[in-house]
Structure formats: C-alpha cells, structure tokens
C-alpha cells in the first residue's frame, strides 16, 4: 500500500537580513489514512510543516525536500496550477480562528459554494443543496439560516464548523488541521473535535492535527510527532506516550497537571541546546 503522504527531509528556511532563519529542519514522516498529531511549542515549526505540505508558505520562504509525495504525485514537481487545483480538492486545511479565517464580507453559504464551484462543474441549485447537506453534516441545526449569515453573525464554534464544512465539502483525502480548536471555548472545543473525529472516520481521510496540546493530541490521534526547534525529536504511537524516550517529550508530559496531586513548585521545561543542534 502506498502511503497517502510521504515527507522526507522537509526544510523550510527564510532568508533574513542577518542570515537565514530555519523554521523547519528536516522533518520526515509518512502518513496513511490515519491521524497524525504534530505537537510542539510556538516556533517549533509545526505550522510551517503544515503550510509547506499545502504549498502555502509565505512567498519568501524556501522549501526544500528530498521527497514530498501525495500518493504517487510528486508535489514539488507538478506545475503550480495543478498544485493549486489539488488544494481544497485533495488536500485541505483548517485554520485556527474562524473570526479571521472566514471572509467577513461573504455569507457562509457563498464561501462554501465557492469551494465546490472551484473544483466541480455544478449548477447553483446543486451547489446550494450540497452546501446545505454539508452544513448539516457538521451538525448545524438550521443550515438554511446559517447559509445566509455573515461570519460575524455566528459564534466561534459555529464559525469553525462552517470552516470545516468549507474545507471538507469537496471530500479531500488529506486534511491538515492547524490548531483547529485553540481559539474556541473548552466546551465548544469538544463538540468541534467530535464533529471532526466523526467526519474523518466516516470518510476515511488522513489527518494531520497540529496542536500545542499534548493531551488533546494523544487522545485524538493514532500517532504523535513531537517537534522542537524545527526538528522532529520523537515519533511514537499515542498509546505509548508514557514510554517516550526523548527528554523533551518527557518534560512536556511531566508538565501535564494531575488531578489530586499537589505539585510545588510547578515543573518547568528544561531545554538543552544539543536538542536543537
């Protein structure tokens, strides 16, 4: 079986006035129709990894890789146009905050219809029908009404569901979720995760779940990839998280609060320069 996504030695660098800044320094993994979590602190390169797979890094970024394949398609070799068409249709991405990631002057319905009509030759009526059923699939109770609303008129949870609907309406095979619940209230987080979980399961998609929340990722994903300073420091199945060998992962796990245990002083992460080397 060929993997859905193969990444070998991915590097993302940004030229700056004082030299190059290396955001991602050699990330390799392969992904089947499974859930891979990427965790790491801010600036560890997890988001840049996701953007590089989408082909959406900032335009001054230099993306290099030994291999970046989606199925049998070499993403680095195909023309930009073909890569563009694959976005939304084969690989989609959910962003962090629906407050900023939905176009404020377009109704939610139109934004979802737009994804559909970019990738499929269908009429208005059919696009509308499919949008409404997609809104229903993300458990929006009143799809007809939400269809006509503007992003500022809905709550964060509703906005993120609309975002999920917008990105999944063309049934992509791979979804990159970049901190999809970090901007939401805790109670809403769980609802949105449940919806995401259900849709990814039903449709047999591959998922890359980027988060800084180790516990969330380990409960939601099959495998976890821990990043530190642009490098992968550890990759292991979620179930085996306790057996982590890298001191950074251990440090992260140690910081998780435990119910009933009174810890004073709170443990802090200890960062060794040689991990980043």
């Amino acid at each position: 079986m060929t993997a859905l996504l193969t990444v070998k030695n991915l590097r993302v660098t940004y030229p700056t006035r004082t030299g190059v800044s290396e955001a991602v320094r050699g990330v390799s993994f392969s992904l089947g129709r499974e859930r891979l979590g990427i965790v790491g602190e801010s600036g560890s390169g997890k988001s840049q990894t996701g953007r590089a797979i989408m082909g959406l890094t900032a335009r001054n970024a230099i993306v290099e890789t030994d291999m970046l394949k989606f199925g049998d398609i070499d993403l680095m070799r195909i023309p930009a146009r073909q890569r563009r068409i694959m976005r939304g249709k084969s690989i989609a991405m959910i962003l962090q905050d629906p407050k900023y990631s939905l176009n404020p002057v377009m109704t939610i319905g139109r934004q979802i219809v737009e994804t559909l009509r970019t990738h499929e030759r269908i009429g208005n009526r059919e696009a509308r029908q499919r949008t409404l059923s997609m809104l229903e699939a993300v458990q929006i109770r009143d799809p007809e009404r939400v269809f006509t609303l503007y992003p500022h008129e809905v709550s964060g949870g509703m906005g993120q569901r609309a975002m999920i609907a917008m990105m999944l309406v063309c049934s992509p095979e791979l979804l990159i979720a970049d901190e999809p619940t970090s901007a939401l209230d805790v109670t809403v987080q769980l609802e949105v995760l449940k919806i995401l979980d259900k849709l990814v399961g039903e449709r047999g998609m591959g998922l890359i779940f980027i988060s800084h929340d180790l516990r969330l990722v380990s409960s939601f994903c099959d495998r976890v990839l821990v990043m530190y300073a642009g490098k992968m420091v550890e990759e292991l199945p979620s179930a085996n998280l306790k057996n982590a060998t890298h001191p950074y992962t251990k440090g992260l796990l140690n910081c998780l609060p435990q119910i009933g245990v009174h810890r004073h002083p709170l443990p802090v992460l200890d960062r060794q320069p040689e991990w980043a080397a």
């Binding site: 989408m54 563009r84 976005r87 939304g88 989609a92 900023y100 990631s101 994804t115 970019t118 990105m167």
Partner: peptide
Amino acid sequence: NQEYIIAARAKGLSE
C-alpha cells in the same frame, strides 16, 4: 495579509 486569504488559497481558488 489576513488569514482569510490563506483560507481562500487553501480552498484552491485562483490567485
């Protein structure tokens, strides 16, 4: 520079 532009790119819209 807004996020919704990245989202629009992620949808596969033309430049």
